[in-house]
Amino acid sequence: MILNVTILLLFQLAGEVMARGLGLSVPGPVLGLAGLFALLLARPSLATRMSKTANGLLAHLSLLFVPAGVGVVGHLGTFGSDGPALLAALVGSTVLAILAAVAAFLAVARLTGAADE
């Protein structure tokens, strides 16, 4: 468990160093994700030992967004008179984006015969 958390932190740290050092717009943790994924491809046995820690962390991913969510409440006033319009834009565009992505995924899956097994 401690070793697994250490591995996660090391990859995050390496990702942050790369992102800052090279001035990339990709967040450090995303680069860390890519790095760990590459290591898992090279050493699949590592996945077996890390999966319990990773799944435990991801099972309660929602919790990790709570502090940022509380921060949002204090800023709702900054919407001012634009509030209803912004809310309409957020709801409308989120629904449309989900529909567009699902439709494109299924259409191309059918065309290329990449149906799910």
Partner: peptide
Amino acid sequence: GPATVALALPLH
């Protein structure tokens, strides 16, 4: 941050 890195496991 670590949770984002941990996404590598379900991906794999």
